[in-house]
Structures are given as structure tokens and as C-alpha cells.
Simulated assay, not measured.
Amino acid sequence: MFVQPWDAGLDEAEWQTWIAEGHDFGQLSVNGPAGGPPLVVPTHFSSDGGDLLIHLARPNPVWEAIERDPNVTFTIIGDYAFIPAPWRAAPGTEPTDGVPTSYYAAVQFTCTAHLVDAPEAKAELLRRQLAHFQPDGDHATVAVGQPPYGRMLSGIRGLRLHVTGVRAKFKYDDHKPVELRTAAADRLTERGQGLDVPAAVQQRRRLRRVGPWKL
């Protein structure tokens, strides 16, 4: 993932907070067979200290690839919007002379994958995931040999992705004039399509922290 200086995360707390606000779905990318394309799997995840926790169905084709090469990438993307040309036109120029772009936030983890196959270890992984996704505890107990989850454990494999690197990107025109960024956020809010409003929230947040861009 290419990151311009003005798009970079401002500190670790920024991307950590962004993920904690509900961005817990991403794409696992693994090296495919020689001469073949990478394998990419969309999935929810939770975290446990320095590891990302995932479980996938046993028939998933990624397992052979991970066993061959445990170096993987996990990417989360959100708060994205298309910005049309007129929104980015310089003052005094034709609106159509502006150059369109995309706004988005992304966090990319490079990881070493560790397989989780022991029944109790898989049960513990699921318990940790459920604690994240259903914190009210409105689910059955996950226990080896006990329904409903016990009989399902053999049908999944778990993954602990040990994070070895993080790249965060918040692409919201931080290098552009304050007036353009403010107007773009207002237009996103007014348009209100897809993730326009969350994108406007991110742009305004970055605007407050960054202010006018300085090299």
C-alpha cells in the first residue's frame, strides 16, 4: 500500500481507535501457488494483544498456502467515498478542470500466521471472538464436546496472525487547502450516499488535527 506523507497515520492511537470504532472486517491475503494469483478471503476478525484472531472453514483453500508460506497480509478498508472533479477544482478555474479522487481509510497488517487446530485452542479462540462480537453474552457456551459448538469445531481451523508491521492510511486530501477540505466534507454530508457521512467525519477529524498541511 502506497502512502503519501499527508495520508499517513498521525500516530498509533489513530488507527487503533479507528479499528475499535467498529472496523473489524477485512481481507486476508496469502501467497498462492507458484505461478498463481494470491488468495484473498474476506472475514471478520478480533484482536488479542499483538495477534489478530480469525477462524475459517476447513475446506477453505488458503490452508495449504499458509502452511507453505505463513507470511500474510490483512487489510481493513472503510469510510470511503468518490470525490468528483468539480469538488477539487482550484479557485478561478473551470469546475470540470478538477481531478477526481477517492477518499478512504485503510490499515494493513503484515503478519506471521499460526494455525490453531487443537480443539480446546479453537474453542478458546471462538470464545474470544464472541466476547468481542457479542459482549452481552447472548450465545451458548463454546466448549469441546458440548452442543451446539462442540460438534462444529472439527469443521473449522483457527488462525493467530502475529502482527509484524502496520501501515495506516487516511486519504482525505490533507495536503489541499483547508477551504477545499471543509467544502468537500460539507458536500459529502449533503450527498449522503454510501459511506459519504463517515468519510466526512474522518475528513473533519483529520482537518482538526492537521490544519494547513506543512511539508
Rank of each mutant, 00 (worst) to 15 (best):
L28F: 00
A90F: 10
T189Y: 01
L52M: 08
R181I: 00
A113G: 13
D97V: 07
P212K: 10
G32P: 06
P38H: 09
D173M: 02
A85T: 13
R208I: 02
P86M: 10
D136H: 14
E64H: 11
C111D: 11
F45S: 04
W6H: 15
A199G: 11
D196V: 05
F133M: 10
A168V: 03
G192H: 07
R128L: 14
L215S: 14
S154W: 07
E94D: 15
A118Y: 07
V72C: 04
P59S: 08
P37C: 09
L126Y: 03
Q193D: 09
D69S: 11
E190A: 15
A105Q: 07
T93Y: 13
G137E: 08
D97C: 08
G50Y: 04
P212T: 11
Q108S: 12
G192W: 02
A183T: 11
Q108F: 00
C111P: 10
H55R: 06
F2L: 05
F109V: 04
R128M: 10
Q129T: 12
V99S: 11
I83V: 12
E12C: 06
A105Y: 05
F109H: 11
F109D: 01
G26I: 02
E67M: 05
A123C: 11
G49H: 07
A81E: 00
L28S: 04
G192F: 02
Q16I: 01
R191G: 02
E64M: 09
A113Q: 10
D24F: 09
I66P: 00
G165W: 03
Q202F: 00
W213G: 03
A184V: 15
Q202E: 14
F2K: 01
Y149K: 03
E124W: 05
V166C: 01
G192K: 01
V107M: 06
A185G: 13
L52D: 05
V3E: 02
G26T: 00
L39G: 08
G145E: 09
W87N: 02
G165Q: 13
D136C: 03
V30N: 03
F74E: 00
A57Y: 03
K214C: 12
R167D: 13
L56F: 01
T141A: 15
S47N: 12
W87L: 07
G36Q: 15
R181N: 02
S29D: 04
D174N: 12
H55Y: 12
Q193W: 08
H23C: 00
A184Y: 02
